[in-house]
Each structure stands twice: as structure tokens, then as C-alpha cells.
Write a protein that binds this DNA or RNA. Structure first.
Length: 563
RNA sequence: UGGGGUAUCGCCAAGCGGUAAGGCAACGGGUUUUGAUCUCGUCAUGCGGAGGUUCGAAUCCUCCUACCCCAGCCA
């Protein structure tokens, strides 16, 4: 489908601070044999545009340096995770065009090893079972300006800790009764080092391990070690994990791990007029504000796919925004620009009239039907399509005006007494307008200039412009869903007055139940992009049935001010 | 407030001591059987601020300022 095979080349050209670090690493004496990265989503929601950036970075970096990238589900919190999300995430990554190394990994498949390492820490006197409840633990932790206090359980003996931890694992304690904590430094100015929790008791079954465990490791105790197990060389994550890096390294230093991955952080992607947080996107879904995770207004990968955004465009966009450590909010227009750039060369052209006005051609015989052949793309060779022409047409209401004083440059459409080109067909002249009792224009009588198909007319018949059309008796009805940005606020999650769920653009979805498409669109495939000439990019939606075609507007065409 | 980060055009972003790339947007001109595309041009004497070092500073030093992250048994 994609005519763009320059993605890999341009990806190879783009660089960022992480690539620079890797280049240095590769030159060093202890250079890794191979670069290994990983994309570690938690299966607690669908992937969004922010994840796309991380995916492009991790898979793209591995590709650039002839390394590999693992897909690892960071499934340490079964309460919020599900198999449905796992399947959706795999589907989205594949759709983006990336292939993970070997089999999918799961942090949960390392639970035994992680447990043994926890025991190891206890044996070395570096971890203890703490009976403080959540509230008490918070009080003991202190705050930014107050150092924490040691837990009264901090100095339990190694053997007692071993017994207690085994009992935790065996289900001997109620949820929340106790936890395993690392013995680091309650006075640390880095809150993450104030004896962080390693394991908590969770009496829930896990989507991968079933009821095998009732204790689950916390992120910090699982992530770095999982990286080490997999031989990850560069563990790339977002900025909010920066403060966790000392802890990440502490575990690698205090455990007999086989390799020492390094963590690097970059700033997460933010887009204006949207939210990029799985938690918030889930709220939109749960509250029914949108129709599911793949609603075409959602910045999820599956939503964008359904909207008609292409993988090529999303990857191009990720390339455009770059990778840095500074927080910023990217203009959603940049994403749209990448989408148009791809669709301009990859979308087939077709015609569809949204708001029809009947045109009767006075000098075309009743019942006469001519089959015209039009290029699928005006510049690229994408074949031809057949288009029936007849005495009765539909054009857009907007493309006709009674105001004959409108200048030819000001209004490049149909006006009584003047000429206009029907795209790919004849030049016509509007002769007469017919109105109903209320004065509404219901029909225009026009005539064709013979011999103007594929040929320019004599100068005196020079058309004001080109308009799109369909043959009224051949056109197929279809439903159009026109989308606009989901939020009316540029920064919905930073608004002080209202929660983001109340900043929804009331016009984010407009349904046009009956538009008229050229017959070739009957063959439109789901997810295949079209440009409806002069109106916008559209894509056939999976809701389409043999009786009713449904198209989603991907984006309108750009419009210069004059229009 | 303690700690950790970040500040270059409206937005994103190169720059790594030698005199401010590029993209998006915007604004002008041209081409065009899509008011699309394409194309040509304009768009930071200035790099958060103030000092300092240097022949030379966005790049080095000092001091300010603003914003982001951390006080989940989330990731």
C-alpha cells in the first residue's frame, strides 16, 4: 500500500542524544556485541500516540544499530491488566510496522527469578518484611523537607524475614498486612530510596500466571532486573522515571545479575487539543464520551488507524518531533501535516457529493449514459477508474451561486451564464435556476460544451474553475462521519476550571447520513485511504455493510484563505 | 520547601567555543482539469535574565528566574 520506502532511510538519518550515547558506547572498549532495547507496555489500556513515539524510538534505535528490540509486557499489577489489552497492543505494534525480537516477553515469566532475588536481598540483609500499613508507611516516609523514620520492623533478623516472606508468598497474610521492602536509606533526599517496597500482597489472579502468586513485585523491583535478564543494553524510558534510576542501579549492584543495562530518559510526547494518558483515555471510554478505545477521535493507535491515519504518517511524525529531554507540547497540526503528506501520494482519488444540488443537462439525451475513464491519481500512475456520466448530476450546493457579480478569481465555481469544469468530464454552462415555493434553489439547468472531455475549450468558454460531481442515477449513497478535534481546549488536562471530560468539542463528530459517492467507491476496502477530491481524505469504516457504505473523514484538505 | 530535570522563532528542533540548520504554522508570488498538490520567496543582530572568562560565547564560569518530575501497597 505505502509508496514510501524512505522511512528507513530517513530514520537512519535522524539522530538524537540517545543515538549519540549509543554511538559512543559502540566505540568504547567494552562495547556491547549488540544493541538490545525493549518496549515495555503495561497491558492496562490501549497504546496511544505517545507510545508510538516510544515504539519508534526503541524499535527504530535497534534497527539503526543492527540490534534487536524486545516486546515485554510489564505485567506486575494484575488488578488493572487484561489479555484484551495484550492482544490490542501486539496488533498495534505490528500495524505500525515493527517486529519484536523472538517471542513476546512477560515480566510475569520472571516471577520465580524475581522471588529468588528478593530472598537473596533478605539473606544479604538488604531487605525486610515490614508490617506497617499503607497509612503508617506514608507517615514514616516523611516528605520533601522531612527525613523519613526507620520502620520498627527494619531490624528483624534475616531468618525471621525469610520465614515471613515465605509466609507472604504462601498466602499466610491478608492483603496489605505486610510488604517486603529494600533496606536503603530513610533519610535520602530521593524519596525513591526511602526503603522502597519490593513486594505487596495482592489476592487476585493474574492473566498470565493465574492463581500461582498472591504477592507481586512492584515496578522498581521488576523492571531493571527484567532488563538484565533479557540482556537489554539501553533501557529507554520517559522522564518521570529519572528519579528511579538510582534505585534501578541499586538493584543491579546488589543482585547477582548477568548484565547491567543502563537507563536513559526522554521527554514524553504531548499534543495540544488531546490527552495522552492511558488513565484519561480510559475515562473517556468508560464514561461513554467516545465509542471505545478505537473511536476515530481518540489519539490511540487503533483510533488513528480507524480514522485513516497511516503507519507511515505516524512514524514520519515521530521522526519530525525528535527525541529530547525538554518538555513541550507539539502542535497537533504537525501530526496532521504528516498524515496529509502521506495521503497525498498514497490515497486514491474519488468524488463524493456531500450536500447535493441537482443539475440537469439540457443538451444531454434522457437515458444517455457515457462511461468516462479517470486517473486514480492525478500525478502518480495508480491506474484508472470508470465513471458514469448522464443527464442528471449532483454537485455541491456550495458550488453554485446566484450572485453573478462574483469575480472569477473570487468564486471559481458555477454561476448562471458562466462556465465551470466538471472534474474529469465536460465543461458546462449554467443556464437557469429552479426554485421551490419557499425560494430554495432545488435545481440548476445547464448545458455541456461538447468535445471538452480531456480537452480545453475555446478561450471564450474558459471555465471559472473545477468542481466535483456524481451522476445522480449512478451515485451510491453513503454515510459520512466528519471528525474534528475531541477537545475544545488546547490543553484539556491543564485547565483549572473544568476537568478534561467537560472540555469536549461538541462538534467532534458530525454524521452525514446520506452523501453521494461515485460507484467505484463500492469497492473501497476497509482502512484504505481515499481523497474525495476538493473535500478531504476519507477511509472506509468497518461499520460499512453491503447496503450502507460508511466513510470516516481522516482530515479535510488544506484550504487557502481565499476559499 | 529537599532532591532531580529543562529553558534556542507562534510550535517542535539542530547546534557540542569560530560568528543561529531543518520541519510545522504563517505571510507573499508562480503553476495547476482538486481554491489540493507542486514550486519560489519572506520569517531569531538573536539563543530565559544579569554578570564574567575569551580575539571570539547559544555553547565555558557565577548568580538569578520560570516551568516539569518525585511524598501509590501504579507503571
Amino acid at each position: 500500500m505505502s509508496n514510501d520506502n524512505s522511512t528507513a532511510e530517513s530514520a537512519a538519518k535522524t539522530s538524537n542524544f540517545i543515538h549519540q550515547i549509543i554511538e559512543d558506547d559502540l566505540k568504547s572498549a567494552d562495547a556491547p556485541k549488540q544493541i538490545v532495547t525493549r518496549f515495555p507496555p503495561e497491558p492496562n489500556g490501549y497504546l496511544h500516540i505517545g507510545h508510538a513515539k516510544s515504539i519508534c524510538l526503541n524499535f527504530g534505535t535497534a534497527e539503526k544499530f543492527n540490534g534487536v528490540c524486545n516486546l515485554r509486557f510489564d505485567d506486575t499489577n494484575p488488578e488493572k491488566e487484561s489479555q484484551e489489552y495484550i492482544e490490542a497492543i501486539k496488533r498495534d505494534i505490528r500495524w505500525l510496522g515493527f517486529t519484536w525480537h523472538e517471542d513476546v516477553r512477560y515480566t510475569s515469566s520472571y516471577f520465580d527469578q524475581l522471588y529468588n532475588w528478593a530472598v537473596y536481598l533478605i539473606e544479604k540483609g538488604n531487605a525486610y518484611v515490614c508490617d506497617l500499613n499503607a497509612e503508617q508507611a506514608r507517615a514514616y516516609r516523611g516528605d520533601f523537607t522531612t527525613p523519613g523514620k526507620n520502620s520498627p520492623y527494619r531490624d528483624r533478623s534475616i531468618s525471621e524475614n525469610l520465614t515471613l516472606f515465605a509466609k507472604m508468598k504462601a498466602g499466610g497474610f491478608a492483603e496489605g498486612f505486610c510488604s517486603l521492602r529494600a533496606k536503603i536509606d530513610m533519610q535520602s533526599s530521593n524519596m525513591n530510596l526511602r526503603d522502597p517496597m519490593l513486594y505487596r500482597i495482592l489476592n487476585v489472579s493474574h492473566h498470565q500466571t493465574g492463581d500461582q502468586w498472591c504477592i507481586y513485585p512492584i515496578y522498581d523491583f521488576a523492571h531493571g532486573q527484567s532488563d538484565a535478564i533479557e540482556g537489554i543494553t539501553h533501557s529507554i524510558c520517559t522522564l518521570e522515571f529519572e528519579g528511579h534510576r538510582p534505585l534501578y542501579e541499586w538493584f543491579l549492584e546488589h543482585l547477582p545479575v548477568a548484565s547491567t543495562p543502563r537507563q536513559y530518559e526522554f521527554s514524553r510526547l504531548e499534543l495540544n487539543y488531546t490527552v495522552t494518558s492511558k488513565r484519561k483515555l480510559k475515562q473517556l471510554v468508560d464514561k461513554g464520551i467516545v465509542n471505545g478505545w478505537d473511536d476515530p477521535r481518540m489519539p490511540t493507535i487503533s483510533g488513528m488507524r480507524r480514522r485513516g491515519y497511516t503507519a507511515t504518517a505516524i512514524r514520519k511524525f515521530c521522526d519530525m518531533v525528535g527525541v529530547t529531554r525538554s518538555n513541550g507540547v507539539v502542535d497537533v497540526g504537525m501530526l496532521e501535516s504528516a498524515v496529509r503528506e502521506d495521503l497525498e501520494v498514497n490515497a486514491k482519488r474519488a468524488m463524493c457529493v456531500i450536500d447535493p444540488l441537482k443539475v440537469t443537462l439540457s443538451n444531454v439525451a434522457e437515458g444517455a449514459s457515457e462511461m468516462l475513464s479517470l486517473a486514480v491519481h492525478p500525478k502518480l500512475d495508480m491506474g484508472e477508474r470508470e465513471l458514469p456520466f448522464s443527464k442528471y448530476l449532483y454537485i455541491e450546493k456550495q458550488d453554485f451561486s446566484e450572485d453573478t457579480s462574483l469575480g472569477r478569481k473570487k468564486f471559481k465555481r458555477l454561476v448562471i451564464g458562466d462556465y465551470v469544469r466538471l472534474r474529469g468530464a465536460y465543461v458546462i454552462k449554467a443556464e437557469q435556476v429552479i426554485k421551490d415555493d419557499s425560494g430554495q434553489i432545488i435545481e440548476v439547468i445547464a448545458s455541456i460544451v461538447p468535445g471538452t472531455v480531456g480537452a480545453n475549450p475555446a478561450p471564450e468558454f474558459k471555465p471559472r474553475g473545477v468542481i466535483h460531481w456524481v451522476s445522480a442515477c449512478h451515485a451510491v449513497p453513503c454515510e459520512l462521519r466528519i471528525y474534528d478535534r475531541l477537545f475544545s481546549d488546547a490543553t484539556p488536562d491543564k485547565n483549572k476550571e473544568k476537568p478534561f471530560t467537560e472540555l469536549i468539542n461538541p462538534d467532534s463528530l458530525q454524521v452525514i447520513p446520506r452523501a453521494w459517492a461515485e460507484p467505484s467507491l463500492l469497492k473501497a476496502e476497509i482502512e484504505s485511504g481515499y481523497q474525495f477530491e476538493r473535500t478531504g481524505y476519507f477511509v472506509a469504516d468497518a461499520d460499512s455493510t453491503p447496503e450502507q457504505l460508511v466513510f470516516n473523514q481522516t482530515l479535510p484538505l488544506r484550504e487557502s484563505k481565499a476559499k
